[in-house]
Nucleic acid binder design. Structure first.
Length: 638
RNA sequence: GCCGCCAUAGCUCAGUCGGUAGAGCGGCUGAUUUGUAAUCAGCAGGUCGGGAGUUCGAUUCUCUCUGGCGGCUCCA
């Protein structure tokens, strides 16, 4: 090979090799390290993802991209989206593909097409299978803009993408069999690599800011192998079995009625859990100098006009007319807190003033968004409003973030933080927003909190730090929130007198820790598959007499436990021990205690801990102190 | 709210090519008195989500309303 035609390629391990110019990336990787390149879906050329068929043009760095890399995963999912599009266009001629990106957990492709039906999906799946078996190559072509516009003349969506593409780059398309899609690439070499692709479902997508008909979205997931897909589907099935709505019924915690959609009915056992969560949060309140208040559930319209809800939130409010006057059920606690602050003159000595309120809130959520306990129309937040001088805000936010970390660790929940900044439509001055955002960002950075920036996602009155947790199917739900608000004090004309004798405007921090009891418990139930930590369990101990001879002693033990504030109950001897143990396990009771001849004689108990196969022997006093101790310390495991 | 799907006993589900229904679990009663994940038997329980239409006849077909599920949007 002549010096002119040779290029030097550097690989991830530092090795360097010479290749003829235009050697395909895949071939170069093979020669470098066949083993490491076996699972390569594509390659990275100087950090840019390229096809394995990409002809290497010059000296540079080359690395394999596999499913384990985020970029590689995106490529497989993106190729999967193409495969779905190919399947749909084959099944429904005239369907117009719009776009089909990879997502955090799979991919989707949106189509301009008549509403889909389940049998359409069957056809799509069949067409996809055929293509995978045929191992149809993804072939890249680069076209002039004009040729591309001719090729996609009947697809306005693609024409728009062509128009929006950078003008100095050629437009690329990929052919897969008879299907051609506008695409920047790269892709896997052929559809044979997509054996682990699965279509999950379809739905209509409202096209924002246009009155156009909804698009049809097909969602799916993609894995490199059929086995990995099967494993994923198995995980999904198991996750579905952990749905909190199932435990509402099985554990007799809560229910819903058709006549009150989105309004939970809390059963006695559910109330026990809610009360324990309240106690948990109230301990925090006492430690940190909060005071609790109670304000009306209904306010006249004028209050909401002052707070801004009438303008910004009326759609979501329940209204009621009394003697010709319109009242609204409060969707948030802020108005009541503001009115209490304003009820008399305030001094700087009272700040920070922390007013907590656990009141039922009503929000008229759109019917299609309701979802078990995680999206309801009536709920209680562990809410508080903190009135501060501006120089007190940062320390307060810092304290709140530390609390949130502690609280969520108690439940062994993983949580994600988002910093939501100024939205397009905002109240107030840009400068105060910048200050507020700077404070939040500084706290997050200085505490080394990992967070995602959500530009423009802030509330209309201020930026916020949001805490998100995921349910068993990976859906993310917002729970805790810390919002810095410069606007509501202006709206309610709040003032305090400072040490300088002048009147000053306070800043308000709206915040929740767990969010709402409803949503938090919903997600928690899924996390623990109904096995609540003992301190939250509605029944903590079930006492099983071996025979009726042991009932007296068992009743005595239940009474002793109750006197020690351990929630316990008796399971009579009508059924076999094995059956009663099984039932207790199904009922998620943390501790099962069996009393027979031996135990009655010794004054001991035979303890079976939830989930364990073996039993332990304790004296009654030992067991009671063991149980009360673990409950008091809020241990996660029984 | 939008698109699609679904709705049979308290729960999970079967069934009726149109002739008003069945199982398991749960509940109740009785027998059993059991040593750590299901003892046995009997009984009760359903205007087959509501309304309208087609039909001699509708739980079954059609329309509509309500609710639920999966997404979209929105949010604690």
């Amino acid at each position: 090979m002549s010096e002119l035609d040779a290029i030097r390629v550097r690989f991830p391990d530092g090795a360097e090799e010479a290749f003829p110019k235009s050697t395909p990336a895949g071939s170069a990787l093979q020669r470098w390290n066949a083993e490491a390149s076996k699972s390569a879906l594509a390659a990275s050329w100087d950090g840019v993802p390229v096809d394995l068929a990409f002809p290497l043009p010059s000296d540079g760095d080359l690395a394999p991209l596999t499913f384990e890399d985020r970029a590689g995963r995106d490529i497989l999912e993106h190729s999967s989206a193409h495969l779905v599009a190919k399947g749909l266009v084959e099944s429904i001629p005239g369907a117009l593909p719009t776009h089909g990106p990879p997502t955090e957990e799979g991919f989707f492709y949106d189509f301009d097409v008549r509403p889909l039906t389940p049998s359409d999906l069957d056809s799509v799946r069949a067409a996809m299978d055929r293509s995978v078996r045929a191992r149809e190559p993804f072939v890249r072509r680069e076209l002039s803009r004009l040729d591309a516009e001719i090729l996609f003349a009947n697809n306005p969506y693609k024409l728009r993408y062509i128009a929006e593409a950078p003008p100095d780059e050629p437009v690329s398309v990929y052919d897969t069999g008879t299907f051609t899609d506008l695409c920047r690439g790269p892709h896997v070499p052929n559809t044979g690599w997509l054996e682990g692709v699965h279509v999950l479902g379809f739905s209509a997508i409202t096209q924002e800011d246009s009155g156009a008909a909804p698009l049809q979205r097909i969602r799916g997931v993609g894995f490199p192998t059929r086995a990995q897909l099967d494993q994923y589907l198995k995980m999904r099935t198991e996750a579905e079995a952990r749905d909190h709505r199932i435990f509402g019924t099985k554990l007799d915690l809560f229910s819903f009625e058709d006549a009150a959609p989105g309004f939970p009915f809390w059963h006695p056992r559910g109330m026990v859990v809610i009360h324990e969560l309240e106690k948990f949060v109230r301990e925090h309140l006492d430690e940190a100098g909060y005071e609790e208040i109670r304000t009306p559930l209904l306010f006249a319209q004028s209050v909401y006009e002052t707070s801004g809800h009438w303008e910004h939130y009326r759609e979501n409010m329940f209204l009621t007319v009394v003697e010709g006057r319109t009242f609204g059920w409060k969707p948030m606690n802020c108005p009541g807190s503001m009115l209490i602050f304003r009820s008399r003159a305030r001094s700087y000595r009272e700040l920070p003033m922390r007013l907590a309120e656990f009141a039922p809130l009503h929000r008229n959520e759109a019917s299609g968004t309701l979802h078990g306990l995680t999206r309801v129309r009536e709920f209680i937040q562990d809410d508080a409003h903190i009135f501060l001088a501006e120089d007190q805000v940062e320390a307060e936010v810092r304290t709140l973030l530390a609390w949130i970390a502690r609280a969520f660790a108690t439940f062994r929940l993983e949580w994600n933080v988002e910093l939501s900044t100024r939205p397009a439509h905002f109240l107030g001055e840009k400068e105060t927003w910048d200050r507020a955002e700077a404070i939040l960002e500084h706290v997050l950075k200085s505490t080394q909190t990992k967070y995602r920036l959500a530009p423009g996602e802030g509330a209309f009155y201020g930026p916020k730090i949001d805490i998100h947790i995921r349910d068993s199917l990976g859906r993310s739900w917002q729970t805790g929130t810390i919002q810095v608000d410069y606007q509501i004090p202006i709206r309610f004309d709040l003032e305090y007198q400072g040490p300088d004798g002048q009147l000053h405007r306070p800043v308000v921090v709206h915040r929740t820790i767990l969010g709402s009891w409803e949503r938090f418990l919903g997600v928690l139930l899924e996390h623990v598959a109904g096995r609540l930590p003992p301190w939250l369990a509605p029944i903590q101990v079930r006492v099983l007499p071996v025979t009726d001879r042991h009932s007296g002693a068992s009743i005595g033990l239940v009474e002793e436990l109750r006197a020690a504030r351990v929630r316990s109950e008796l399971a009579g001897a009508d059924e076999s021990i094995a059956k009663r143990v099984r039932t207790a396990e199904v009922d998620r009771v943390p501790w099962v205690v069996v009393l027979g001849d031996k135990e009655v004689a010794e004054g001991s108990v035979s303890l079976r801990v939830r989930g364990a196969r073996e039993t332990r022997s304790y004296s009654r006093a030992e067991f009671i102190s063991y149980a009360t101790d673990r409950v008091r310390r809020r241990e996660f495991d029984p």
